[in-house]
């Protein structure tokens, strides 16, 4: 795993990414600008560091840039370009989104807004003995019109059947397992970026808002909710950072699950601290909260991943130590 980028350079890149994301908030709108800033080169030079930087920025700005396509394409070993999109698994799942059934391929998954611009889609197909990467003409994939809970987000359901001979097998260097791990670790950073934003909003509100003649931040019930959020965020962050040094897929799944749990709990606590204003469409909070719901479901959620992780341990009869001092 390459570790080529200095912290200062990463910070500089992060600033550039955040500015580009803030300028073009609509789904997929910032993609080209991010490629122009060197996103593809960054992924190529230092994939995990690079995606951590970009996805933290996604979480912080709540941008709907479609960078997950590139992270998964890169880990699959297919071309990374603004013209290529990827079909993702169905909500709460991390299995390949397509199944071969005789002469047809049944696709049940999610796609990002990248699809609208893309000419090719990378599609992992479950063959019975593992997933293989294929390429398919993007024009064959139609998404449902439903907008869902968070109209600003990039992801839509995709449910189609296409002829098996429409797929071109890709000679790739990556595996589906590596693609899932790369997605898990990137999405963990996005969830944590969002969780930190929600916590900061709630903290500031608690300090500014006065009731009973004092700041609501002085009430222990409020303080403990915010403290609880910070602890979950920091715990998940350490695991997500651990993924930068260790490409173990189990560690990445743990990071995604923990980050989802931290972000969902922070959303609940932040909403309670914000109270009435946090329930309005006027306050920005609801955008981050809804995005958290969406991102949590991608490649397995805080509620489905523990089952998968538990089953993995049961099939190995023991628990690996994962990280060493």
């Amino acid at each position: 795993m390459s570790e080529l980028i200095e912290a200062d350079d990463l910070a500089l890149l992060a600033t550039g990414f955040e500015a580009a994301m803030a300028e073009a908030p609509a789904p997929g709108e910032a993609d080209q600008a991010l490629f122009d800033l060197g996103w593809a080169e960054l992924l190529d030079a230092a994939s995990s560091q690079g995606s951590a930087t970009a996805f933290s920025a996604l979480g912080k700005t709540n941008s709907a840039a479609c960078l997950l396509d590139d992270v998964v394409a890169q880990a699959l070993g297919t071309a990374v370009s603004p013209d290529t999109c990827v079909v993702f698994p169905s909500p709460h799942q991390a299995t390949a989104p397509a199944q071969r059934r005789g002469d047809t391929v049944v696709i049940d998954g999610l796609v990002s807004a990248r699809l609208e611009r893309a000419n090719t889609a990378a599609l992992a197909v479950e063959n019975g003995d593992g997933a293989v990467a294929t390429a398919v003409d993007a024009a064959l994939l139609h998404v449902t019109a439903a907008k869902g809970v968070d109209p600003g987000h990039a992801y839509r359901r995709l449910s189609v059947e296409i002829a098996a001979d429409a797929l071109t097998p890709l000679a790739t260097s990556g595996t589906w397992e590596a693609a899932v791990a790369a997605a898990h670790s990137a999405l963990a950073h996005q969830l944590l970026g969002g969780a930190r934003w929600m916590l900061a909003e709630a903290r500031q509100h608690a300090i500014d808002r006065v009731q009973f003649g004092r700041a609501v931040a002085s009430f222990q019930a409020i303080r403990h909710k915010l403290a609880e959020s910070l602890v979950l965020i920091e715990g998940a962050e350490s695991v997500a950072q651990g993924c930068l040094h260790d490409p173990d897929p189990l560690l990445a799944a743990l990071a995604k699950s923990l980050a989802g749990q931290a972000a969902l709990t922070t959303a609940t606590h932040a909403q309670q601290v914000l109270a009435g204003i946090g329930f309005t469409a006027e306050h920005q909070f609801h955008r981050w909260m809804k995005r958290t719901l969406v991102i949590d479901t991608l490649f397995g959620s805080a509620s489905s991943l523990p089952i998968e992780i538990g089953n993995r341990l049961l099939s190995q009869d023991s628990a690996p130590r994962l990280i060493q001092l």
Partner: peptide, 17 residues
Amino acid sequence: AKALGQAFQSLVAFRCR
């Protein structure tokens, strides 16, 4: 599986921290 998965993830969060 879920109870084990959740207990494990809390242990790993502690361990990484």
